[in-house]
């Protein structure tokens, strides 16, 4: 699925590991709008990215970071933020 690219305020979304496979991409540019939270962003992504990815993000365990800092689903987003959806870790 092709990335959505606009010249307006945007959020950069990153996917890793299993999530990148489900998304068929490791990054996606989403339109930013006022009072946006991570949860609202996920709703906006629904229908634009593969349903398997959306289902995983809604129903399975994943964490979120905003600008490389761990965050919560209801945290507010700013224009040009970098959001990453993080599946369970397995380093070491």
């Amino acid at each position: 699925m092709a990335n959505q690219v606009t010249g307006n305020a945007m959020i950069k979304v990153l996917f890793f590991a299993r999530l990148a496979e489900l998304a068929h991409t490791d990054s996606y540019n989403a339109d930013y709008r006022d009072a946006m939270t991570v949860r609202v962003l996920l709703d906006d992504m629904d229908g634009k990215l593969p349903q398997a990815l959306i289902d995983y993000l809604k129903y399975d365990v994943s964490m979120i970071s905003i600008n490389k800092v761990m965050a919560d689903w209801d945290d507010s987003l700013e224009d040009s933020d970098e959001i990453a959806f993080l599946p369970p870790f397995s380093g070491g």
Binding site: A17, F89, S90, G92
Partner: peptide, 22 residues
């Protein structure tokens, strides 16, 4: 490191491939 660092591991072998979780 095994539970907090943003690192992911996938096994590929005779049983196919599998992303590991914690």
């Amino acid at each position: 490191l095994k539970t907090r660092a943003t690192i992911w591991k996938k096994e590929v072998g005779t049983r196919g491939q599998k992303w590991l979780g914690v």
